[in-house]
Amino acid sequence: MNGSQRHVALAVFPLLLLPTSLLAMAWPAEATGTGLVFVSNEKSNEVVVYDQSFNRVKAISTSRRPRDMHFNAAHTLLYVACSDDDAIDVIDVGKLAVVKSIQTGPSPEMFVPTSDGTAFYVSDEENSRVEKIDIASEADVQNVATGPEPEGVILSPDGKTLYATSESADLVHVIDTASGKVIKNVPVGTRPRRFVMTPDGKELWVSCELSSEVDVIERATNTVTDQLTFVPPGFREEQVTPVGMTITRDGSKVLLTLGRANHIAIVDAKSKQVLAYVLVGSRAWGVDLSHDEKTAVVTNGLSDDITIVDMASMKPVKSVPAGRTPHSVVIDD
């Protein structure tokens, strides 16, 4: 199945017939950043950088096993969690080079910067904790014990509450950042992975990889109010392993990668109905939207490529080679 699905039939999509200069022009005029697309590659220890036409600009060598990535507020720096070297590398977006490496606990995977940009919360899947690292001093300033294999982390807009999944305990920990204490454990589906929060702050969506569902947590009560399943035509529920998510700025649509089902789902966030299933590469994992939200980029962990999705038509445009085992994607625009 993988072979035939891996690379979308290029000629089908009219966007591709445009010259690359036109394709670039289709990108946002209001873009503030460089427009560069950054893809972390777990097994080739590099962040591959593409321009807006998805031409490869550079492969930045990083510490080993680069995974989650976040920009600083000014988008001048890109932080990359490098699990096998227990570090968060700092990439200078102007120079496209690693300028510094901040030591963390063992095996950092997912992390979230604080809104003031002074610290990160990093999930440490080896030691079953979330640690807060002060960026300036590079010091570990807080430790929160979690269930085994903590993964996704997200902060509330006011920074007072941190949420972390424990993949192995099937819990979402609700953590008070002031005290560093778990104030509630919310049982969710099997192997909870990642979060998105609706812009109004009311809902927290959690992807549960092995129970093939997304659980919606109502933040006011910290209870699961919806369990959503997404099964593309021709697939069975157990073949669907949801992981990566992103949400549009207006909160109207959630994009969800379906892992081994080789699709993403584009979901109406209000009605919770699927708008489209989009065929991408093998084991779709990470996803991000361009600033104008006209384009989504999906990393395909087992076909070592990324798929570009046109959001207007909700169709795949093309797939482009990445490094080995692409994990996350972020777009600087």
Partner: peptide, 17 residues
């Protein structure tokens, strides 16, 4: 799309305290 909602309610017993 929404399923097994009864299960979610049953699961709440796991909460702290």
């Amino acid at each position: 799309m929404t399923r097994r909602f009864a299960v979610a309610v049953a699961l709440l017993m796991l909460g702290v305290g």
